[in-house]
Amino acid sequence: MAKERGRSVIASNRKARHDYHIEDVFEAGLALTGTEVKALRMGRASLVDGFAHFSGNELWLEGVHIPEYLNGTWTNHAPRRRRKLLLHREELEKIATKTRERGRTVVPLQLYFKDGRAKVEIALATGKREYDKRQSLRERQDRREADRAIGHRENR
């Protein structure tokens, strides 16, 4: 079989960019079982309730839903099990020191295959307040209206 090239996105957490101020972004590998990889290759996963936390010196991803593989047998995985994130020691230490500060958390942004390997894009984030969310929505709407006006003007 030919080796995969490039990046194919499986799942994206768009709500995270709405609910959090994204500070740093990291790419981490995932420790998966065989049926999880097969289910991901079918393009089925959800990052909506996902978060990452430290247990000892290791970073674990929780709340990510990878449904059971349809053709799996008794070896199938639990859909919401903990999954170990694979990062370099320096990255783990950087994330650990920043998450000790109040209000910081680690959220998954995207789940994808990169050159045939399952990767997750995680971000150090700070939660937004309600008025921050409204302000970012307003800015996006204003930008969209300005683009529309410019496009309408150019078409004349």
Results as ranks from 00 to 15, higher is better:
71 N>S: 12
108 P>W: 06
84 K>S: 08
68 E>F: 07
71 N>G: 14
77 H>K: 04
45 A>I: 02
55 S>K: 02
93 E>P: 09
51 F>P: 13
91 E>R: 03
90 E>P: 13
110 Q>S: 12
104 R>P: 14
40 L>E: 02
31 A>P: 06
65 H>N: 05
47 L>R: 01
118 A>I: 03
69 Y>I: 07
43 G>D: 02
76 N>G: 14
71 N>Y: 04
117 R>K: 12
86 L>F: 04
92 L>C: 09
107 V>P: 12
64 V>L: 07
119 K>R: 06
105 T>D: 10
92 L>M: 14
85 L>P: 00
66 I>R: 03
74 W>F: 09
43 G>R: 06
86 L>V: 15
122 I>L: 05
78 A>W: 04
102 R>G: 08
99 T>K: 10
65 H>F: 11
56 G>Q: 07
60 W>F: 11
115 D>Y: 11
45 A>R: 01
88 H>P: 10
59 L>G: 00
111 L>D: 00
120 V>K: 11
90 E>T: 06
38 K>N: 09
78 A>P: 13
103 G>H: 07
54 F>T: 14
101 E>T: 05
45 A>T: 03
39 A>R: 01
64 V>W: 01
79 P>Y: 03
48 V>C: 15
99 T>G: 14
118 A>G: 01
75 T>Y: 04
59 L>D: 00
55 S>D: 10
51 F>I: 08
103 G>A: 05
46 S>W: 06
110 Q>W: 13
70 L>H: 06
40 L>G: 02
96 A>R: 07
113 F>V: 10
62 E>Q: 13
77 H>S: 07
73 T>I: 05
61 L>S: 11
69 Y>A: 15
37 V>S: 12
98 K>H: 07
107 V>F: 08
63 G>S: 05
95 I>D: 00
113 F>M: 08
88 H>L: 14
51 F>A: 04
48 V>P: 00
99 T>Y: 08
37 V>R: 05
113 F>I: 13
50 G>I: 04
102 R>L: 11
59 L>R: 01
63 G>K: 01
108 P>N: 02
117 R>A: 03
93 E>I: 07
103 G>I: 04
71 N>M: 08
60 W>K: 05
90 E>I: 08
109 L>E: 00
65 H>K: 08
89 R>Q: 06
58 E>Q: 09
78 A>T: 09
105 T>A: 12
115 D>M: 08
74 W>C: 15
109 L>G: 01
45 A>V: 03
46 S>P: 03
50 G>T: 07
97 T>M: 13
32 L>T: 04
121 E>K: 15
50 G>P: 01
38 K>H: 13
65 H>W: 06
96 A>E: 06
63 G>F: 01
102 R>H: 13
68 E>N: 11
76 N>W: 07
68 E>P: 10
71 N>D: 08
42 M>Y: 02
63 G>H: 06
53 H>F: 10
111 L>C: 09
65 H>Y: 15
82 R>F: 11
66 I>A: 01
87 L>D: 04
110 Q>A: 11
76 N>L: 13
119 K>F: 15
109 L>A: 04
91 E>W: 00
83 R>I: 12
56 G>P: 09
121 E>H: 15
79 P>L: 11
40 L>Q: 01
46 S>I: 11
43 G>C: 06
41 R>M: 13
81 R>I: 03
76 N>R: 10
115 D>N: 15
41 R>Q: 06
51 F>Y: 03
80 R>V: 06
62 E>M: 08
57 N>H: 12
114 K>F: 10
96 A>K: 10
104 R>Y: 12
107 V>G: 02
